[in-house]
Each structure stands twice: as structure tokens, then as C-alpha cells.
Design a protein around this nucleic acid. Structure first.
Lengths: 152, 152
DNA sequence: ATAGCTGCAAATCGTTTGCGCCATG
DNA sequence: CATGGCGCAAACGATTTGCAGCTAT
């Protein structure tokens, strides 16, 4: 680790809050985690692990993709970040042709259909940012299914 | 193909509608597609391709997993079925800690954040089916981003 | 006839794991 | 100094592709 890095460690306000965050969540502070965290916060949008890896390599050329994956998962598990959408492990197909939404269990990842009228009326904004044209809405109600409500 | 299969082809009402569906969407009717379609419609929930494959094998033991994948994608592309949630190809991480939702382009799969107030108030059902306990709502506005609105 | 589909096997992509060495607390 | 994290390479699971033969129109 370079002198500049060490100096950065001792002074940076970012670093102080990251150290606190790690303390709060019981995580060991490492140089890799520190940089990964800063880089992820600096990227707009929702980068893939590969994109994050490329950015972090600019500051730590020797970092491995495995470390990026391990720590992204660690950050998600600790609640620092979250997944954009639930990862079900494989392609899931919708064969219910009625208008409906989904209840997704964050613990066991089961998907239950929820009819439109069981949810209620959705807002219908006239215009959306960036000239985006809406075709339909899909609501995920995230929570715990009956089986997963008793901690195990 | 067995006599029973041929007889089934000539008589079944299911078959007639599937033939019509294929005609409407410009698809060739094959025995594999016919059975795949029927099996998929008969499975409750949101099966993975492997689960669909296992069920189809009960009726066509020689079918290949590749054929199942090819035809699931074909059915999705034709609008017969759809994906439960957009497949972005890799894990996407959420680093925006404000309450917000997403606009997802169904063509290029880009994800844009949409602040809660830009969308409007969501319904808040008192109780959900199956004793599901909601933690939060995540709305995907599916449609086309500005770049993808001009067909290419 | 012939364009398109199938099954097979190999390739690819994203992600995870095992392990010996090194950094942090 | 004792955990636990790191980088590497191999393993893995899901999905895609190339190809030679077969099927539907």
C-alpha cells in the first residue's frame, strides 16, 4: 500500500464513514472493500459486477473479480446495498395471461401471483422522465411468505 | 410419431387453437412446440426451463434441453408468454438509497431510476393473499427508452 | 423441394469455490 | 498471533451455438 493510500486512510471523511459503516455491520475494513464501496457509490445507474470490476481495477490493478463478487454479496447481505431485482437463478416464464403482479419472498425467493384488483389502482403518470414510453407496470411486493415468517 | 399422437393432432381442440396461434404469429407448428406449449400452460406458478424440460420429457423422452430453451424464447418473442422479470444478464446492484422505482427498457434492457413522487401514490392493501407480509413495493415501468423508440 | 426445426455436443457466460498466502484487529 | 480476506485457477450451473440430419409446408 502506497504512502498516498495510507495518508488517504488517515484523512478522508469518506473513509471515516466507511469504517463506521463496517463497525456497525461487523465487517472487517480492507483496502479492497473501501475502494470497491467508493467506486460503486460513484457509478450512476446499476452496473454489472464486470463493470464495477473494471472501475475498481483503475485504482487496484491487482484486484480479482472473485473479490468483487464476494464483497458485492457481502454489502448486499449487510444491507449497504441491495439487488435491483430479485435473482431467481434461472429464467422464469409467465404463463398467466391475466393482468397481475407478484409477491416475491425475499427469503426463499418464491413468486406468487397477485391479481390486479387485489393490489388496488396504480397511479398513471402522464409523462415520464427521459421521454420514456410506458407499455405496462409490473409491481413486485417484496416481503416474507407465510413459511418464511418464523425465523429459522 | 405414434398413431395416438397423430389422432390427437387431428382431433384435439387444444391443437386447433395452437395451430391458429402459430399461424397468427408466423410460427411453424411442430410436435415439440405443441407439447411444450400445452405442458407450460398446465404448470402452475413460474417454472424454470429445467422444470419445463422435465415435464415435457414425460411426453417426448427424446426432446433436448436446447429445444426447450429455443422454443421458450420463441414463445416469449412472439408474445405468447413473457418473462416474469426482465433478465439483465447479470447481477445488478442498487446503490441509490432514496425510495424509488425503475423504468426498464424492454428492448435494450437499460434501467432508469424513477423517484417515488414522479410515479405517484401506490395502493396500500390491508391484507395480502396467503398471509404474505409486505416489506416494500418495487414498481417496474416497462416500456421503451428514448433511444429504442425508433425501430431498428 | 426447401426453409426451418431437432438433437447432440461443445462452447460460452456469469458466478462460485478451494486453497495457500497475506493483512487486519 | 489468530482470524478472516485476498488472488488465482479450477469448478459450476445456466444458457447458447454449430452442425448434420429430419420435418413441415
Amino acid at each position: 500500500m502506497s504512502i498516498a493510500h495510507i495518508a488517504g486512510h488517515l484523512r478522508s471523511g469518506q473513509d471515516v464513514s466507511f469504517r463506521e459503516l463496517c463497525a456497525t455491520h461487523g465487517l472487517t475494513v480492507t483496502h479492497q472493500r473501501q475502494v470497491l464501496f467508493e467506486v460503486m457509490q460513484s457509478i450512476p445507474g446499476h452496473p454489472s459486477p464486470e463493470e464495477v470490476y473494471a472501475r475498481v481495477q483503475e485504482r487496484i490493478p491487482s484486484i480479482s473479480l472473485a473479490t468483487v463478487y464476494k464483497n458485492i454479496h457481502l454489502f448486499i447481505a449487510s444491507g449497504l446495498f441491495r439487488e435491483v431485482s430479485m435473482h431467481h437463478g434461472s429464467l422464469r416464464v409467465e404463463m398467466n395471461d391475466r393482468l397481475h403482479h407478484h409477491m416475491v419472498c425475499t427469503r426463499c425467493k418464491a413468486i406468487y401471483d397477485l391479481d390486479e384488483e387485489q393490489l388496488g389502482d396504480l397511479p398513471h403518470p402522464r409523462r415520464l422522465p427521459n421521454g420514456f414510453v410506458a407499455e405496462r407496470y409490473s409491481v413486485d411486493v417484496l416481503g416474507l411468505c407465510a413459511n418464511c415468517q418464523n425465523p429459522g
